[in-house]
Design a protein around this nucleic acid. Sequence first.
DNA 1: GCCTTTCGTTTACAACTGTAATCTTTATTA
DNA 2: TAATAAAGATTACAGTTGTAAACGAAAGGC
Lengths: 139, 139
Amino acid sequence: MMEVENMSKAEWQVMRIIWTLGQATSKEVIEVLKRKTTWKTVTIKTLIIRLQKKGFLKADESTRPYVYKPLIAETDAIHQSVNDLFDSLCCMRKGKAIGDLIKNSPISKGDIDELIELLQNKRETAPDEVECDCLEASL
Amino acid sequence: MMEVENMSKAEWQVMRIIWTLGQATSKEVIEVLKRKTTWKTVTIKTLIIRLQKKGFLKADESTRPYVYKPLIAETDAIHQSVNDLFDSLCCMRKGKAIGDLIKNSPISKGDIDELIELLQNKRETAPDEVECDCLEASL
DNA sequence: GCCTTTCGTTTACAACTGTAATCTTTATTA
DNA sequence: TAATAAAGATTACAGTTGTAAACGAAAGGC
């Protein structure tokens, strides 16, 4: 009943490899994932097939073995899943949740500078308090 | 095969209400969720029961109707799900993903100040670049 | 104390997921 | 070219999730 297809955790691992390589054969994906997981070869193929059905991957069938290419950009996919998760959080808690992420994520100096600037701009128009919306009518 | 029980999207909506109220009867939960969703009463009860089975909620059965209380703190649950998601992202992309969240989330001035400080401290020891780890052996 | 409403429990069922075995087709190699 | 290997497709099966109907127990109204 999902309107927009969703990428599962396991499928996400497959996509990461194809995003990183730009494109890949099933063999290449399998090689990498065999090192990271205990999944069987066929399992990984199943994931690739599901990703095609869901419209996240496209096989170039003009060559054998097929070359799989992403139909969605990594940044877009990240944007979607991250915002999807945050949509279900209490407004009031989002700031701290972001703090948590900052603590736990490796971030480059350059990115940190961008984040600080973003925050400084946001501060201009930021409210003193963000109210909890958990009991409100809109989901 | 999940080691640690996971809270589904729909279950999360139930928890939000109980977290916000501190505790609640099924009726209270249902009243709020009827305003936010199209779920039937029984559907919501199913979710409450699943949350009990998973150990996220506990019913105080000494009174009728039962009063449900959270067994996990909201902040802990948020910490877990947010970090769980970020664990599956490419290292290299996490900084921008956080930027995305900052852009899209309402954050109070106080929280913004904390985030800025956090970032300034983190900057001291931050690397110039974060390398992509998508092809590496550890999941 | 009986009837109706409310609340809680059990069962249901299809789609999605993790995980894979088996079968088929295409390519490679002796 | 026949045998074998590799790649792809089909089928499988249990657990989770969204979504709910049906059933049973308790409680309030008369």
